[in-house]
Structure formats: structure tokens, C-alpha cells
């Protein structure tokens, strides 16, 4: 048994310690947001956060994860009460098929938690690890900028000092 902390909740998982996190999330914990895309860490569809950093869950064995904070899209909000990142994607209508989107959201979330004032170039640089085949890139950028603005406004007026210089709060 391995204990994993996912979205703030502790789970006892009965799986081979070599099992990639992705399969435990989807098949054992019923968390569908992270997707299988390549199994090689090349596309980012499986991206989740571990201790605040974006990781490829398809190549991260659960043996490495006890005691660490795992966060998935399900931890960002719900369909009834979506969080800022989710609202950003809904407002920007930033999906076509949407299969890559949860991975995009988690990588963007990790970036904005580390750097709330991330510039558009920062966002592009970070998201370059994640592939989108529908060509939704422009909307994904828009969504992440909207999410950044929503997060800043949620933190109150003092957060004004962190406003990006490139018009991220459009």
C-alpha cells in the first residue's frame, strides 16, 4: 500500500510502486482529467502538479510520491464552482476537442503559482512542453492570461504590483 495525497485528500493505493501516477489517478482514484497521450513525457496531456511543479504523470512512478502534494484539474474547482484557471478556459472558450486542455491547465497553474506576473512570453515558454493538435493555442494563451487576472483580482488590490507588463489583464 502506498499513501498518496491528491487534491488535499489522502488515498491508500494498492498498486505496484512502479506504476505511473497517471494510471493510479485514472483507474484507482477515478480522476479523469489527466490524459494518456504518449507515455514518454513528450506531449503533456498527462501533466499534473507535484509540490507545486508541473510533472508528466505518465512517467512518474507512484513510488516517488508518498508525502508529496499532488494536484490535478479536479483540485482547481468543480463544474458548479470552477476555479480561476477553469473560468479562464471557459471564458476564452479555449478548447476544440479539449483532450490536451487539462494538461495545459496544470502546467499553466504551476507557472502562475510560482510567478503570478508571468508575461505572455513566459506562458509560451512554459507551455511549449505541451502539445495541442486542434490548434487552440491562441485561446489557451488568452485563457491563461484571463486566469492570471482572475487570480490577481482574487488576491485583492495589493496584487496590483504584480500586473504583467504585456497586457495580460486584457
Amino acid at each position: 500500500m502506498i499513501t498518496l495525497t491528491v487534491n488535499g485528500r489522502s488515498h491508500e493505493v494498492d498498486a505496484d510502486p512502479a506504476t505511473p501516477l497517471l494510471y493510479v489517478l485514472r483507474d484507482d482514484l477515478g480522476l479523469h482529467a489527466a490524459k494518456y497521450g504518449c507515455g514518454f513525457g513528450q506531449c503533456g496531456a498527462c501533466t499534473v502538479m507535484v509540490d507545486g511543479r508541473a510533472v508528466f504523470s505518465c512517467v512518474t512512478p507512484i513510488a516517488a510520491l508518498p508525502g508529496r502534494q499532488i494536484k490535478t484539474v479536479e483540485g482547481l474547482g468543480t463544474i458548479e464552482d470552477p476555479g480561476p484557471m477553469q473560468r479562464g478556459f471557459i471564458e476564452a472558450q479555449a478548447a476544440q476537442c479539449g483532450y490536451c486542455i487539462p494538461g495545459m491547465m496544470m502546467r499553466a497553474q504551476a507557472l502562475l503559482e510560482q510567478n503570478p506576473a508571468a508575461s505572455e512570453q513566459d506562458i509560451r515558454d512554459h507551455l511549449a512542453l505541451n502539445l495541442c493538435r486542434c490548434g487552440t493555442h491562441m485561446r489557451i494563451l488568452d485563457a491563461v492570461k484571463r486566469a492570471a487576472a482572475l487570480m490577481r483580482s482574487a488576491r485583492g488590490p495589493d496584487a496590483g504590483t504584480t500586473v504583467a507588463t504585456d497586457g495580460a489583464a486584457r
Binding site: 477515478g30 480522476l31 479523469h32 494518456y36 484539474v73 470552477p82 472558450q93 479539449g98 486542455i101 487539462p102
Partner: peptide
């Protein structure tokens, strides 16, 4: 009118949105 897509909310909140997600 630019009505919002009916399928996007589930897709961005971890809903069972794809055949890949069916259990």
C-alpha cells in the same frame, strides 16, 4: 450568437468527457 460551447465545462473540470474516460 456566440453561445458558449455546451461541452467545455465538463472538459475543463475533470468530467467524464471522452470515451477514454468511461469506466
Amino acid at each position: 450568437r456566440p453561445v458558449r460551447r455546451v461541452d467545455i465545462p465538463a472538459k475543463v473540470t475533470g468530467g467524464e468527457a471522452y470515451v477514454q474516460d468511461m469506466r
